[in-house]
């Protein structure tokens, strides 16, 4: 009897926490709505305009198909180079940041902090920074994606390293293998397929990022999109959007398919 009473009280405590949580979220939502002066009337007022603009995008301006495809190819190239650079640079940092390879704690903490710092910046901030440094064009886009992706790839990959089975490392140590051999024969085979998986996943994200980075002048199809938006050429916007959607979808599925096959 006594135990059932305590567990009932625990249950009540837990559901109280949930109610407090709901209330806090609701309060935050209402506070934000009032602060922004948003109400249902204003939301519904915009809908007809949305409809008109979407209608203007159809049919897409087929005369711009070729230039959109050329822009998209540049976007793919930006994503490929940016992801490759990030993959190469993130790998040493992810081993450095992992806490289970016997490196001094100060080293892995430093590694983790570097990765955290990089992830704080949104890619658009990197984009604007590199457009300012290198001038507008694909190189700025490549640099922005390359540096920005190191943060996420490094973090995911270091977590993969931390999750490996220590058994094979011990077994290799017991054979008298040296440190590079232990690394190559016991650590690398455990992490490599998953590293490729995270890199492909980042490539999918980078393809979308690269489409948008053109908005700040960092090359690719985004440049066409930005100009069409500025001059309200909705049929051209429609054409570029169509190309982006089709290409991103195809590459997304292919990359996800390869990832499944590898892991």
């Amino acid at each position: 009897m006594k135990t059932s009473n305590t567990s009932l009280r625990d249950y009540e405590k837990k559901s109280m926490k949930w109610y407090v949580g709901y209330f806090v979220v609701l309060a935050l939502f209402i506070w934000s709505m009032i602060g922004m002066n948003i109400n249902l009337e204003r939301i519904s007022d915009g809908i007809p305009a949305m409809g008109r603009i979407l209608a203007l995008m159809v049919p897409p301006d087929t005369a711009r198909l070729e230039s959109s495809v050329i822009g998209m190819i540049e976007t793919i190239q930006i994503a490929v180079i940016g992801t490759t650079i990030a993959a190469i640079f993130s790998i040493p940092v992810s081993f450095m940041a992992a806490r289970n390879l016997g490196l001094p704690t100060a080293v892995s903490t430093a590694g983790k902090q570097i990765l955290n710092a990089i992830r704080t910046f949104p890619s658009l901030v990197f984009g604007i920074f590199f457009v300012a440094s290198y001038g507008p064009g694909p190189l700025a886009g490549v640099m922005a994606l390359g540096i920005n992706s190191i943060g996420m790839l490094g973090k995911l990959n270091s977590e993969i390293v931390e999750a490996i089975d220590p058994g094979p490392i011990e077994a290799l140590e017991a054979t008298g293998a040296n440190y590079p051999e232990m690394f190559l024969y016991a650590v690398i085979p455990q992490v490599l397929p998953e590293f490729i998986g995270t890199t492909l996943y980042r490539f999918e994200l980078n393809l979308r990022q690269a489409s948008v980075l053109g908005l700040v002048g960092a090359g690719g199809i985004g440049v066409t999109l930005m100009q069409a938006l500025q001059f309200r050429r909705w049929a051209i916007v429609g054409m570029t959007m169509l190309v982006i959607i089709v290409v991103v979808t195809i590459l997304d599925y292919s990359s996800a398919f390869i990832r499944k096959k590898i892991i």
Binding site: P168, E170, A171, T175, Y185, P189, Q190
Partner: peptide
């Protein structure tokens, strides 16, 4: 030579 309870092989190799 050493032999382990959980074999300690590299599964993917």
């Amino acid at each position: 030579g050493m032999i382990f309870q959980n074999f300690n092989l590299v599964n993917r190799s």
